[in-house]
Simulated scan of single mutants.
Amino acid sequence: MRPTLVLLPGMDGTGELFEPLLQALPATQPVLVLRYPLDGPQHPAALANWVGPQLPADRPFVLLGESFSGPVAILLAAAAPPGLQGLVLCASFARKPSRLPAALAPLAKVLAQLPRPTWAVSAALLGPHATPALRERLTGALAQLPPAVLAARLQAVLHGDVRAALRQTRLPLLLLEAQHDRLVPARCQRELLALRPDAERVAFAAPHLLLQCAPQAAAQALLAFVDRLVSPCAAAQSAAR
């Protein structure tokens, strides 16, 4: 049996934006999409505690953290839950991607209350890859996000730093990098590689939402990663750890 691919969503927290990737994955690849709660703390440690009990307990799995969820996935991987065989970070980071000081985090509450122009959000997340269908899916997902929750997640990004946890991880790591990312700069990918020089990196000519804009290529990279994890060679290496 192939390991289940557990998908942790980006800032929207709905998991609905994974649909293009789900359509690109074969039926033989088990997938579990998680959705974040709209109440309670929204920082990575709290969300990791919320996700933990929902992880597969009776079968192996691979954890993917998209963007905002990268730190959540890192904290979970550092805790080494039974069955976890690999970690994937997609267009993500180990600490705040913005150069803005954390002292400006209170402004997140103000920004979250402002109207969200569709064109600006689309340009930032989808770039020239935007299609009517993708824009509609993105708008629908973000519309479900209350301003208070958005503000809490923005603050979590500005304050977060899970570099120490990433150093503790020993599982195979795959980095999916969006080369045309307007939100997460390339230095974040360099930092991830500096913390885990053994990580595998696959770059895509895509914007921040690379799983949505390049689903076929992303699916191929994920399947290849999972295949290597279940190969006899990978199993031997895992047993030797």
Rank of each mutant, 00 (worst) to 15 (best):
T4E: 12
T4N: 06
T4G: 04
L7K: 05
L7F: 13
F18D: 04
L22F: 13
Q23M: 06
Q23V: 06
P26V: 07
P26A: 08
V31Q: 04
V33G: 05
G40L: 02
P44E: 03
W50R: 06
P60G: 13
S69E: 05
V72N: 04
V72M: 07
L75Y: 01
A78G: 04
G83P: 06
L84Q: 09
V88T: 09
C90G: 06
F93E: 02
P97D: 00
R99Q: 11
L104W: 09
V110I: 12
L111M: 13
A112Q: 03
A112N: 07
P115K: 00
S122D: 14
S122Q: 13
L126T: 02
E136I: 00
T139L: 04
A141N: 12
L154K: 02
G160I: 07
G160W: 05
L166N: 06
L173V: 06
L173E: 05
L176F: 08
A178H: 02
H180Y: 13
R182M: 08
L183V: 15
L183Y: 02
L183T: 13
P185F: 00
R190P: 01
A205S: 15
A206K: 03
P207Y: 15
L209Y: 12
Q212S: 15
Q212G: 11
P215G: 10
S238C: 00
